[in-house]
Amino acid sequence: MNEYGVAVFPSSSVAMRAEALAQRAGYAVRLIPTPRDVSSDCGVVLRFDWAKRSGIESLLREAKVDVLDVRPLRQSHRTGGLPSA
């Protein structure tokens, strides 16, 4: 099974920008509801393949996207896959 990571943003508008940038760069990502243990009130986080972490992080850094946190996703249930890029 894939290991996922999530990127956490200050607002959904920022999350939308991150999603658009990542998709345009060819990454398979998905916005999911913010897990309870992630401290953010923004309704969504960006889930990605943890193996792609450094690429996604530098992409967002270069675009000056305000990222609050990047961390592995602890999953207690099956939560669906990533759409293909």
Partner: peptide
């Protein structure tokens, strides 16, 4: 409701608005 909830319709609404920002 854009950006308030995490379900697909909320995300879809936020995405539409973001695309117009672009």
């Amino acid at each position: 409701n854009p950006g308030r909830s995490g379900h697909r319709l909320s995300i879809a609404a936020a995405r539409v608005i973001y695309e117009v920002r672009e």
